[in-house]
Design a binder for these strands. Sequence first.
DNA 1: TCTTAATTTGACCACCCGGTCAATTTACAT
DNA 2: ATGTAAATTGACCGGGTGGTCAAATTAAGA
Lengths: 202, 202
Amino acid sequence: MNPFERLPIEKQARIVNASISEFAEKDYETASMNVVVNHAGISKGSLFNYFKTKSTLYDYVYALALGEVKAYLKDVRDSTIGLPFNERLTQIIDSGVQFIVDHPRLAKIYFRLVYSSDSPNRKKIITELQLLSNNYLGEIIQDGINHKELNSTLNKAQAVFYLDAVLNRFLKEYHDSLSNGKLLDRNDWVNSITELFTKGFK
Amino acid sequence: MNPFERLPIEKQARIVNASISEFAEKDYETASMNVVVNHAGISKGSLFNYFKTKSTLYDYVYALALGEVKAYLKDVRDSTIGLPFNERLTQIIDSGVQFIVDHPRLAKIYFRLVYSSDSPNRKKIITELQLLSNNYLGEIIQDGINHKELNSTLNKAQAVFYLDAVLNRFLKEYHDSLSNGKLLDRNDWVNSITELFTKGFK
DNA sequence: TCTTAATTTGACCACCCGGTCAATTTACAT
DNA sequence: ATGTAAATTGACCGGGTGGTCAAATTAAGA
């Protein structure tokens, strides 16, 4: 059992909270351990006692975020099995929006990872995420093909790529719209994306 | 006339070249003026004499990149006027790929700007780019509607957004594929994207 | 209560940053 | 050749970084 896990939960929460905020607001390289320490109300030595390096702390926070995302994805996949492609896709996109509403800071860390460049294990993490996305969206698309809703000659890898591209970009835009005041019309966009791909993959 | 423009062209080129490399390889915040100086073979004082701040140098390099992009876009738009939507789109995407092949470092700076977070005037620049993309792709789509090739009830803003999302993401992937050895099949992808939107916007 | 072990602290380290500026070198007109 | 103005240099500044560690504090068992 490592020293961090031995800590009282309240203290753990303070540290995790401060770390999430810092990694959400700044790139990995510019995120500051000093800021985390001050915000969490602990000493620098302690933080480096709990997490050997900045990279270790980042990995911990990232794992938290990924676990949360996976839970959302799993829920919506399992609860929409058997539904037509377009209804299923609609609910998946909407679930993505819901994640962003529920966990805006985790979403920001995710976007920063996907869209930005540094962070030590980025390549490995991105590869892992792509595999996840491929399996997940690939399954949805395959189901659509099986039910003759989508073109059977569809290049699945490409289809997943396009879906992933639009989804990610839209979710990022929605995330931004949360803070800049010009909130997007959730249903309008979700339906419009579903329409694009239901027709485009026909 | 500012001191930089008074320099012999060869020296200007050395400085520009070093700056492009550094801003292509690192985020704005982590890009180092010391590295630029060493790579260009000039003294630190000189660089800060030519460009008052790091931000000024970045703006200069960015303006170079943007000018280059605009030239490519203008060329392909003007040379495809009157063509059907799908042929036109194909050539536009292909021109994007060509830009990446011709100027991989400038492309990297562009992607870094779009996908990353820092750099001082990022918000203003991004807004400017979005306006550009809106006008450019908006015009192409409008032409497609006028020629009854695309659905007349299409939400143009959303359509532009999706097109832009897929285009950017694909170009980024193609850019990455240049350096990781697994080069993408250019024609296959370009045609596939055209097909998606020609059907999706019908 | 005393001892010992675990935890916490923050001053400190080496390093790098963007930016400055007095001093030196270079270029040029007379 | 001389004087002057422009260009170039690099040591230096204040500040921030991730990470360390001897010393102080706290917790626990006898």
